[in-house]
Design a protein around this nucleic acid. Structure first.
Lengths: 141, 141
DNA sequence: GAAGATTGAGAGCTCAATCTTC
DNA sequence: GAAGATTGAGCTCTCAATCTTC
């Protein structure tokens, strides 16, 4: 027998960190990380370029974080900084061709990891999880 | 109307990060963090002291991480390093009185945050969540 | 003065290399 | 040589302070 303990804070956070590490380790093989993939994906969605501040908004993080993330993406050759013609204060993060293909490989990895992990859930469980996750997010906001 | 999208990777990780920030911000007011509280709690459970390597095992992290975490806890006055009488290679992390009371305040904060967040779930949902979390952890391990 | 971005400092984590003691 | 701990380098993230441009 094995009693299921009602999920608590640590169980939830620990599960999330396991899932995160799982995907992270797969992305590493593609020269990517979740943070980098998220940024590249926002750029693809925006049509290849975005002012850094906009990127920060869409990543739901602070601007100084994007500055450093884009530094690393630039070092990877996935992104380049360009001046904003409309506003000399602003700088654009522009996707390079390498960045675009990396993003493609990244989402493929992500989706396959997603299938692998969430594929173990029944249809019903997936729906339940969505509802619960929604409730928890709301309660902690 | 509002269709519930089946929970995916990003929804799950985002929810976890919201919950984490919620607790983290409450612990900040007590001069603590989730990482520090976890370490202090492991020490309390162990009866006030533990070799650093043991602490790393119980925190499920790498030893160099514990070295730095204990550095910060020592600076806070919550922990002190002591020589291990049994093995001169080893060093003990020893809880101070301040560390013990901080741990007490910390778990109180944690439990109240837990009630606040998980209290929004029905009995049934809490049980479902536990099962799902268990499945996901297993799939990603 | 306020909106862009960056820099500096620091928390939290990892890995690889090192140093001491077993 | 292997087990303890630490150090150095790097990733991800935050906040406060700064600098330029609006």
């Amino acid at each position: 027998m094995h009693t299921i303990v009602p999920a608590g804070l640590f169980e939830l956070l620990h599960a999330a960190s396991i899932v995160e590490s799982f995907v992270e380790s797969r992305l590493t093989k593609e020269g990517l990380s979740l943070a980098k993939l998220a940024a590249l994906t926002r750029l693809v969605e925006a049509g290849d370029s975005l002012p850094l501040g906009q990127l920060a908004d869409r990543l739901a993080c602070v601007k100084s974080n994007v500055t450093q993330l884009v530094d690393r993406l630039e070092a990877d050759g996935f992104v380049q900084r360009a001046p904003d013609p409309n506003d000399r204060r602003s700088r654009l993060a522009v996707l390079t061709p390498e960045g675009r293909t990396a993003q493609g490989r990244g989402v493929a990895v992500q989706r396959s990891a997603e299938r692998e992990i969430f594929g173990t859930l029944s249809e019903t469980e997936a729906t339940q999880l969505a509802g619960i996750v929604e409730k928890l997010s709301r309660a902690a906001s």
